[in-house]
Amino acid sequence: MAKLDSQLFHIDALDELASGNSVFHNLDPRAKLVTTLVFIGTVVSFGKYEVSALIPFAIYPLVLISVGGLPFFYLAERVLLVAPFAFFIGILNPFFDQTIMVHLGSVSLSGGWISFFSIMLRFLLTVGSALVLIALTGFHAVCMGLEKLGVPRPFVVQLLFLYRYLFVLIDEASRMIRAKSLRTFHSRGTKIRTFGSMLGHLLLRTLDRAQRIHLAMCCRGFDGHVRLICPLKIGWKETIFVLGWVLLFFSMRFYHISEHLGLMIMRNIV
């Protein structure tokens, strides 16, 4: 079960990336948050069968990754880990929607396949950009940005604790699984009784631990507000960042760049 603690959930490394120092790292978290939200909104607003118009949107996460000096493959791996969710949402489309919509030479594609690709592409773009946002900003700073943007405090604190206790939960669970596997010899899998008891113990243990962490936070004056030292100033850099990207997103939304580019190339060739 080494996977659980070392591989799958190494999300904490995202926070380490956030301590980097680049133009984008130093922006106000609110600017990055708003831009990413507009990005996600625009990507999602496209029609069901849209594929080609979505591709240019990859520019946003890619630029952020390259300027912010983030490790591309590390992030790509994290995105792929959650890919099965999107995959299962979209995979039934090709069976239900079999109208042929596109002919590529001798291959014809049904509407179902196109909408499936569209779902996968949207997933890559939205989840990718959200991860890039956290890697550039840090989860706590994102939460602080949310609070400053007027999101009700209980929600923000919930999010903060969810994130904090995730590691506690994984930690406890992996220790428990290790202890169990050391005393399980031939039988494969977990009996439902053992599983139930483990789950109950996990709940009790994490509650205990969560209480101690909460106490530690209260001891240091935690009152439900997230406070961090990070640039909280909307200056000209932030304004340019938000306006520039939002303009680009809207123009890509209403002006089909790939189609025009394709037509232009075709015209030149002919």
């Binding site: 904490d12 926070d15 301590s19 989860f139 706590h140 530690a216 936070m217 240091r220 935690f222 961090l228």
Partner: peptide, 12 residues
């Protein structure tokens, strides 16, 4: 419980 030692010591 914070992402870096600095943030942790600065929390209080």
């Amino acid at each position: 419980f914070m992402p870096t030692v600095f943030d942790d010591v600065a929390f209080g």
